[in-house]
Structure formats: C-alpha cells, structure tokens
C-alpha cells in the first residue's frame, strides 16, 4: 500500500465525517435519521475502489468507536454504535468495499444502469441486510417489523443514489487522474 493510498483512506474517512455536518432529517419512525453521511460509503467505493474505500469507512468506524462525535448530529462513542442505528454504521465499510469492487470490475465506468444497480444492491440492499437485523436485535422486534419500520428511509436513499451518481461523474470529469490510478 503506497503513501497515497493511506492518504486517500484518511481523506475519505474524514469526508464521511464532513458529510455528517449537513443537518440530518429525523423521521419520527425507528429513530434512524436520514443523513447525507450514508453517501460516504457510496462515494468512497465509487471514487477510490474496494480496498481504499472499505478501509476508509473502517477507519471512520474506529474513530467513532473511540469517542469522536463524527456521526450526523454530533453523535459518537461506543454507545451510539451499540444503539439502533449502529448496524448501519457497521455495514458502511462492507458496503464501501462491495461498491468499490463492483466499480473496479467495470473499470470505474459501469454506465448509468450499471451504476444504479451497483449502488442500489450494495449501497442500499447490503446496508439494510446488516442494519435491519441489528435493529431487530437491539429493539427486540421481529425482522419484518424492523424492516417495515425502516421502509420510510428508502425514498431518501434513492435520492442519495442520484446525488452520488451525479457527484462521482462530475468529479471524474474534473479529476481524470482518478480513474487512471489503480
């Protein structure tokens, strides 16, 4: 791993933290807020690939775990990671890795349908696959109840996918060196 890789990992961890600065939109549902922060794993995976993207989000998780208030709304510490939304934060490194892997396989140019599919399957599907059973364990609900409670966040997630596609495409145009590096 080169020095540049390490710097990229640190920067995308920090970017995910910065996305938490956008004011969150809390729905009166299960207590999981709609935040711009969940675009962090999508952007990291789509821009710098599986290894760096996944490690960036793993680093973010560690920083939150040691008590930095980096989650949207200034939350942080082990307490939040064990709470209702903890499973989603845990899912981010895995999602970033999967998204990066898929983008790399498509040589960072999967085309619009490809991008939609990658981000929907790994950015939403995979995250819910981990986050929903977590809610059900923490809140003592059945899987289907936890899932229904989380459905309200899907529209927000779809908007985030659109934003991520627009952002990654523009960034790639503005910074073509990105796709040439590994």
């Amino acid at each position: 791993m080169s020095t540049r890789d390490i710097v990229h990992i640190a920067l995308f961890a920090a970017l995910t933290a910065a996305l938490g600065l956008f004011p969150p939109l809390t729905l009166p549902a299960v207590g999981v807020a709609i935040t711009a922060q969940s675009m962090g794993p999508m952007l990291a995976g789509a821009l710098v690939g599986a290894k760096r993207g996944g490690l960036a989000l793993a680093l973010f998780y560690v920083l939150v775990a040691v008590g930095m208030p980096l989650l949207a709304g200034g939350r942080g510490g082990m307490g939040v990671l064990l709470g209702a939304s903890g499973g989603f934060v845990l899912a981010w490194p895995i999602a970033a890795f999967a998204i990066g892997w898929a983008y790399q396989r498509a040589r960072f140019n999967p085309g619009l349908p490809g991008e939609l599919a990658i981000l929907a399957v790994f950015g939403i599907g995979l995250v819910y696959l981990i986050g929903v059973p977590w809610i059900s364990a923490v809140a003592g609900l059945s899987l289907s109840q936890a899932f229904i409670g989380s459905l309200g966040f899907i529209p927000g997630d779809l908007i985030k996918i659109a934003v991520v596609i627009a952002v990654t495409r523009t960034v790639r145009r503005a910074y073509p060196a990105l796709s040439q590096g590994r």
């Binding site: 640190a10 961890a13 920090a14 970017l15 600065l21 920083l63 930095m68």
Partner: peptide, 24 residues
C-alpha cells in the same frame, strides 16, 4: 496488517477532519 501504516492513517484522518469541516 502494518500497525505503522494504520497509525499514519489514523493521525492523518484526525488532522483532516477539522480541515475538511473548514473546506466544506
């Protein structure tokens, strides 16, 4: 896993978070 590299990434991220907040 190389602990020195992880340490570098950790300290860089800690430094970048306020910088990035400022850039944003």
């Amino acid at each position: 896993v190389n602990p020195a590299k992880v340490s570098l990434a950790l300290s860089l991220a800690l430094r970048f978070i306020p910088v990035l907040g400022a850039i944003t």
